[in-house]
Design a protein around this nucleic acid. Sequence first.
DNA 1: GTTGATTTTTGATCCAGATCAAAAAGTTAT
DNA 2: ATAACTTTTTGATCTGGATCAAAAATCAAC
Lengths: 192, 192
Amino acid sequence: MVDTALASLFAHFEQYIKLSTSLRDALAERMHLVTFKKGDLIHNADTICKESYFIQKGILRTYFLKDGKEITEYFVSENEWVNSPRSMIQQKVDIYFIDALEDTIAFKLKIHHLGYLFDNFPEMERYARLSMGSLFGHFMERITSLRFTTAKEKYDHFLTVYGDLYPRLPLGMVASYLGITQETLSRLRAER
Amino acid sequence: MVDTALASLFAHFEQYIKLSTSLRDALAERMHLVTFKKGDLIHNADTICKESYFIQKGILRTYFLKDGKEITEYFVSENEWVNSPRSMIQQKVDIYFIDALEDTIAFKLKIHHLGYLFDNFPEMERYARLSMGSLFGHFMERITSLRFTTAKEKYDHFLTVYGDLYPRLPLGMVASYLGITQETLSRLRAER
DNA sequence: GTTGATTTTTGATCCAGATCAAAAAGTTAT
DNA sequence: ATAACTTTTTGATCTGGATCAAAAATCAAC
């Protein structure tokens, strides 16, 4: 169980860097599997983010509150990292909450362990640089999509990018992610 | 002239990492000042991006074409880097053009020199990780702004973030950056 | 400074999607 | 299975900002 989980974790890293045995060992020692139940709050915006999670199974959601309503910032699933970015980096509070949309298994990595890895394995810095770089493209696409597409096009784009996740997600959360109302999304869905 | 330029470049790096003398020297050797005239095309979307620029003076704009019209992706000014991110990282063509909105002085860094710096100075990797991290906050704010604010609020937010740049920018470019029409932006401006 | 080109403003109309409201379908717990 | 709650759908109305069009202001070049 733990070994197959570790294997997929290592495979993820290997997409960006070559993993030395010593780095493998260092990672295995510091990343620990934790489980969440559907609905669990993983990170509260009131607190400073002290850990990152690498999802093994399940879906987590980052959201914030606007006028008392939960607005989805993004969804995270298998083989992706989550934390509250600015809170994590600058060690101050930020607006984001993280909760579990399904029963979830994840590796937990504490910030001081992450710091240790960065300080002792330059290839970890490279991994971070490269993996963040590939997120940039997604951000840019999303920004373009928000500026210049109709609700229908946003919905279609969402399906191509998150098609596998989509059936597992409540409608309202998808709507707030796309910046449209739930009613509009429901109507779009109906017309096909 | 070159020394004060180098000083501001180093000061930028020092926000994130401590610069060793050898890294200073390596940077000074590989980054060369170039100038552009207003209107010059710095990067053509037809080509693979082979260099990054660190702006010393002036404004560059990243844009792409949609239905034959230029859509601003973002503006870059003093003490910021520009390139075509995905083209640079993956060394393939992408949709973005870069041009000069003013006469501009910038440091040019070729990709193979950048690679050399990353390979030989682990602190460069750290610099890249940390500086990219701080861009994330801006991306997230922009995404939120695009999803949930009125044209007026977008305009106000732009003024607080890019207030100093604003008077130097053509209206239409700002409008496409914000995802609203030039007419709407013009009306917003009038009503205050 | 006059001419031609570009940018900005102003005006009139229109529509995609928001909002408000309530019914229907689906979920969860006893 | 039934009650209580949550999520999704459907309906009716309204509006911010788009679109189309043209005038006014700015800018650039000879």
